[in-house]
C-alpha cells in the first residue's frame, strides 16, 4: 500500500516536471510557431538567477517563484526585440538564430559563473509515508505544475488578454484589422514563455548540480513533449507529459533509470508514427 502510494507520487512528479520543463517551450512554439532552441539555456539562467539571489540572502521561494521568472523573462524580452522579431514566419532561420543564442548564453554563463558545478540544497524536508521516506520537494513541484496549468487556462480562457492572444495566434491579420498589434502580442507572449522557462529552471535547481551546459539535458525531453502534444497548447502539454512521465517511471521502477529514458524515447517514436500531428490532433480536438 505504502509503496504504491510512493510510486504514484514519483509518477506524478515525473509528469509534473515534464509539464514544467515544457511549458515555456509550448507557449513559444505552440502559440508563435517559433522553435526556441535556446529553451534549455533559459532554464539554466533561471537556475543561476535563483542561486545568485539565494547567495545574496533572498528567501529561496521568492528567488525561485518571482525573481528567476522575471529575470529570465526580461532576458527573453531583449532577445525577442533584438533577434526573434525579425524572423517571425521563418522557421529554419529562427532555429539557427536561437541555436546560436544558446551557445552565446552557455559562453556568457561560463564567463560569469565559471564552468563549475554549483547548487543550493532543497528547501523542503522529506517526510514518512508508512515505512517510506518521500521527498517533500516532489510535492512542491507537483503543486507548482498544477497551479501553472490552472493559471494558463485561466489566463487564456478567462481574460481579455488571453482572448486577444488566442485570436492573434489563429489569424494575426484579423487581429491586426481589429486594431491589435501582433508585434506587441508576440512580444508579450515571448516574455511569458521565457519567464516560464526561467521558472522551470529555478524550481529544478535545488535538485541538481548546475553547470552552464545544464540546459542541454532538458531540451530533448521538452521538445519531445511539445511536439508529441500536438496543436492544442494545454491539452497537448498535459496529455503528452502524462504519457511520457508514466511510461518513463513504469520502466524506471520495473528495470532501471536508463531503461526508463530509453522507453520514453521509444514511446515518442511510436506515438509520432501513429499520430504525426501529435496527440491532440486525434484526441481532445479543438480544446485549448
Amino acid at each position: 500500500m505504502d509503496i504504491s502510494f510512493v510510486i504514484l507520487v514519483e509518477m506524478l512528479y515525473a509528469v509534473a516536471s515534464l509539464v514544467l520543463i515544457s511549458a515555456g517551450l509550448a507557449v513559444v512554439f505552440g502559440m508563435m510557431k517559433v522553435i526556441n532552441l535556446a529553451h534549455g539555456e533559459f532554464m539554466m539562467m533561471g537556475g543561476y538567477a535563483t542561486i545568485t539571489a539565494v547567495g545574496l540572502g533572498v528567501n529561496v521561494f521568492v528567488a525561485m517563484l518571482i525573481i528567476a521568472p522575471i529575470v529570465v523573462g526580461l532576458i527573453g524580452l531583449v532577445v525577442e526585440r533584438l533577434v526573434i522579431r525579425h524572423l517571425y514566419g521563418r522557421l529554419i532561420d529562427t532555429m539557427l538564430a536561437t541555436w546560436g543564442l544558446s551557445l552565446v548564453f552557455i559562453g556568457l554563463a561560463t564567463m560569469i559563473f565559471g564552468n563549475t558545478t554549483t547548487g543550493i540544497s532543497t528547501p523542503i524536508t522529506g517526510f514518512a509515508v508508512g515505512g517510506y521516506q518521500v521527498s517533500g520537494y516532489n510535492f512542491f513541484i507537483i503543486v507548482v505544475a498544477v497551479l501553472l496549468v490552472i493559471a494558463m487556462i485561466a489566463v487564456l480562457k478567462g481574460t481579455r488578454a488571453g482572448l486577444i492572444a488566442r485570436g492573434t495566434m489563429q489569424r494575426s491579420d484579423m487581429a491586426a484589422a481589429l486594431g491589435y498589434s501582433p508585434d506587441r502580442i508576440y512580444m508579450a507572449t515571448f516574455f511569458c514563455g521565457s519567464a516560464l522557462s526561467g521558472l522551470a529552471g529555478a524550481i529544478l535547481a535545488p535538485l541538481v548540480g548546475l553547470v552552464p551546459s545544464s540546459g542541454g539535458a532538458y531540451i530533448a525531453e521538452a521538445f519531445i513533449t511539445v511536439i508529441a502534444g500536438g496543436p492544442s497548447l494545454i491539452a497537448g502539454l498535459v496529455s503528452s507529459a502524462t504519457t511520457f512521465g508514466v511510461v518513463n517511471q513504469v520502466f524506471t521502477f520495473a528495470i532501471s533509470p536508463v531503461i526508463g529514458e530509453v522507453a520514453l524515447l521509444i514511446a515518442a517514436v511510436i506515438l509520432l508514427r501513429a499520430m504525426p500531428q501529435g496527440i491532440t490532433s486525434r484526441f481532445f480536438r479543438g480544446r485549448l
Binding site: I7, E10, G131, Y132, Q133, Q249, T252, F253, P257
Partner: peptide, 22 residues
Amino acid sequence: TDFFPLDVSDFGSTITKIQQTA
C-alpha cells in the same frame, strides 16, 4: 547493485527503490 551513467542527476525513483530493498 545499480549503475548510473555519469549525466544522471534525478535519483527520485532510485531512492524509492532503495527503500524497497531496505
